[in-house]
C-alpha cells in the first residue's frame, strides 16, 4: 500500500477521475491494467495503456467534518497519471 494524492486539476473533456476525489489522499489497494487511457479513447485515439489503481479513501478525508461516519471508506479506480506520491505533495 502506498499513500497517494489525486491531482487537483480540472481539465476539460472526458475525464474518469471524479471531481469529489481530486486533491484527496488515499492508499493504493491494488493495481490493475494496463488499460488504454479513456481520456484518449473518448476522442477516437487508440489510448496509451496506463496502470489503473484502486485507491482507498476514508470518508473523513473526502468530506472532512461533514462525513457521515468518518471511519467508513470509499474505493475508486484512478488512472496512474492522476496520482502523485502523497509525501511529495
Amino acid at each position: 500500500m502506498h499513500r497517494v494524492k489525486v491531482r487537483t486539476d480540472m481539465p476539460p473533456g472526458h475525464v474518469r477521475t471524479p471531481s469529489y476525489l481530486r486533491g484527496k489522499v488515499g492508499v493504493t489497494e491494488r493495481v490493475l491494467g494496463p488499460f488504454p487511457n479513456p481520456e484518449n479513447l473518448a476522442y477516437g485515439h487508440s489510448g496509451t495503456p496506463l496502470p489503473l489503481y484502486r485507491v482507498r479513501f476514508t470518508m473523513a478525508e473526502i468530506w472532512g467534518a461533514d462525513a457521515e461516519t468518518p471511519n467508513d471508506t470509499l474505493e475508486a479506480e484512478i488512472y496512474a497519471h492522476w496520482l502523485e506520491p502523497a509525501d511529495a505533495a
Partner: peptide, 15 residues
C-alpha cells in the same frame, strides 16, 4: 451498527 465499516465502491473505470 457503527462497528460495521461501510465501504463504498465507485465504479469509475474498467472494473
Amino acid at each position: 451498527p457503527e462497528s460495521t465499516e461501510v465501504r463504498v465502491h465507485d465504479s469509475t473505470a474498467d472494473m
